[in-house]
Design a protein around this nucleic acid. Structure first.
Length: 197
DNA sequence: ACATGGATTCGCT
DNA sequence: GCGAATCCATGTT
């Protein structure tokens, strides 16, 4: 299968986010592999988007969003969970796609071990559903900040050439974002039980 | 220097 | 449905 390349990610987040649905996220840990199908994403679209971390301009935390598409933006949220994003668009344009849920495909036992090691999250069911749990399952942390997903040996995305039916809805957990609160920039695969809600 | 709240999740009510 | 866990960025003193 083909790995998604720079060209794929150097488009607007509102194009990349729905296009990522049905793609396979692959994580290599030593000689072990964990993989899953992307079933839920959200687009965060620059400094004007009041839900986007770039709404206050460039900071130490969000600076990687200003680089070219294909780099990883990962950050700690609520003091205890990581959220995994992929930067999109061209350099100086701060957009990103949050990966919110995977349908487990490969390496499920390793993923569950990772969750147990992380603590705080249940390892029994829905263990790649939700951005915090997904990061724990794939053992993703701050050390992935700025990693290039088009080039990395530890994590990448492949295209199995599926064409899933896509549904757009409001983004989760951003009630503070004024008129951007209701933008339909959350994308799920229709009727997929591994996506939330 | 301090107060506030967040792109979350769990467990209890 | 609500509170707790608890780091980081922002805004105020």
């Amino acid at each position: 299968m083909d790995r998604l390349d720079r060209k794929f990610f150097e488009r607007s987040a509102t194009e990349v986010a729905p296009d990522l649905l049905g793609k396979t996220l692959i994580r290599k840990i030593g000689n072990k592999t964990i993989s899953g199908k992307i079933v839920e994403t959200e687009a965060y679209v620059g400094e004007d988007d009041l839900a986007c971390h770039a709404r206050f301009g460039k900071t130490e935390r969000n600076k990687v969003m200003y680089s070219r598409g294909g780099l990883i933006y990962i950050y700690l949220i609520y003091g205890m969970y990581y959220n995994f994003n992929i930067v999109t668009a061209k350099e100086h344009v701060p957009e990103a796609v949050l990966i919110r849920a995977l349908e487990p495909v490969e390496g499920l036992e390793i993923a569950k071990e990772n969750l147990k090691k992380f603590g705080k999250v249940r390892a029994d069911k829905d263990f790649m559903k939700g951005p915090g749990k997904l990061c724990a399952a794939l053992d993703l942390d701050k050390s992935f900040y700025g990693e290039d997903i088009t080039d990395s040996k530890k994590i990448w995305i492949e295209d199995p050439n599926e064409k899933p039916e896509i549904e757009a809805s409001k983004r989760i957990g951003i009630d503070y974002a004024d008129i951007y609160r209701d933008k339909p920039w959350r994308y799920t695969i229709k009727n997929n039980k591994f996506a939330s809600h």
